[in-house]
Design a protein around this nucleic acid. Sequence first.
DNA 1: ATAATAGTGTCTCTTAGACAGTATGAT
DNA 2: ATCATACTGTCTAAGAGACACTATTAT
Lengths: 260, 260
Amino acid sequence: MHRLQAKRIRFRPKKHRSPDGLPTDICLFTILSVPRPTKTRSLPHKQLAVLLIERKSDTYGQQWALPGGFSKESETLDECAYRELKEETNIDRNVHIEQLKTYYKPGRDPRGWIPSVAYVSLVHEDLLKHARAADDASDARLFPIEEAFALDLAFDHREILTDALQRVREKMLQTNIAKAFLPDEFTLSELLQVIETVVPSFKVSDRGNFERRLLATTRRQGILEAVVDADGKPVYSTEYSNSPAKLYRFTDYTPTAMIY
Amino acid sequence: MHRLQAKRIRFRPKKHRSPDGLPTDICLFTILSVPRPTKTRSLPHKQLAVLLIERKSDTYGQQWALPGGFSKESETLDECAYRELKEETNIDRNVHIEQLKTYYKPGRDPRGWIPSVAYVSLVHEDLLKHARAADDASDARLFPIEEAFALDLAFDHREILTDALQRVREKMLQTNIAKAFLPDEFTLSELLQVIETVVPSFKVSDRGNFERRLLATTRRQGILEAVVDADGKPVYSTEYSNSPAKLYRFTDYTPTAMIY
DNA sequence: ATAATAGTGTCTCTTAGACAGTATGAT
DNA sequence: ATCATACTGTCTAAGAGACACTATTAT
């Protein structure tokens, strides 16, 4: 067996250029609650929102862009994303973060050879409230996604945002990331609302059937379980309705969604 | 690292270092068929294999590694991956390729600040046969995955390979990427074999039930459809058995696997 | 009473899962 | 006859989907 040694390069010859930086950019999604003025207690209206910052550079005039920043040699990409998150929102870890994809094509950044490692982060609204309070002079703002897409975003951030949204929608149906937008204990309506807010096409005709599908049966484990008190009685909440609503939580069991 | 000072680039502020390169590394999976010496026609034994190349550098002695190479400013990351694929296997496009994740942690590459954009590629065995024939003096070899994991792989390639395998297993159950390892028309046994080869834990007790689950019913679309001739009669194959086996193909319909 | 939400029960028809059996054709 | 694979049919019980109805309590 002969080897083609010439092909493997040990050290990069000096004549080669290398990237001018490797930033991470973050698509931070949250769900905003807007209380509705109804006659009796009701569920707030919810909308999916994304965090954008206003760029005030010469390069990309007054455009909105995904928050992000250059990674350092001494940190991992995850650490960089967390650092940016902290700088921008004052959120310190303990939030869902995942790497989406790395973007590069010639000319994507007028400043040079700068690929971008995109991240997706899902954050509960409450965490951001605290964060924003702490730094209201920020150049960051939450946009409902339709509004965000109506903007002329900097760089290829529209493409990144599109991919990120698709990723979140897929995972919303195939995993239990709905957790990221819910308290530990929640009502069925809240869960339904979260799913429908993220995936508008998701419609459930019958709440009763939906409930049964998620609870354990004889030959199936359950995704949800009812919250019970010391006596084993179900716990109810009247936060969003006069009629007490059963509280549920996610079980340890996460089914592997499969098509076969 | 001092040698790299020379390549300070125009745009970024001089005080900042930037990466020394951004290679793509490819986890190329294929399924090897090993005919079994049986008394009558039979299905070949199949095993999942990954392509590795032998590194002969001072840095990482005689180790095996994922094939890959540095990306250029003038190309996208996908193009770089395709280019590497072509150089290593002579395969020219038309194969499944997808970006997995970008890896970096301080020290992952002793040569410097070199993150790696990992790709996953699924290639049908036949394509590789042609490719290997064309370049037998290659330093590349296919390893059954268990053997690959038994090796002391260079860099963090074991971690990458682990993630890649997990990704392929997930998608094997949640999408129809089994396509990548199958001809257009195939028997149920072949499909089952592919799934079981990639996901060993996937077991089907009853072939008849498996078949019914994949075909269209009154209130469900089908993942598969039987191949029929001009008269509407099913087409059979005796390639792997004396008993004629119905041929199937994937339909356009790909269900969205969901847990709710 | 009504508003907005939550909950229960029941009926039917699909279909998953299990089981049992036959078929093919080369050796 | 046997081997390795493929196909067919039936039975049962589970559960999805549809429908109809009641409950809660502030206003």
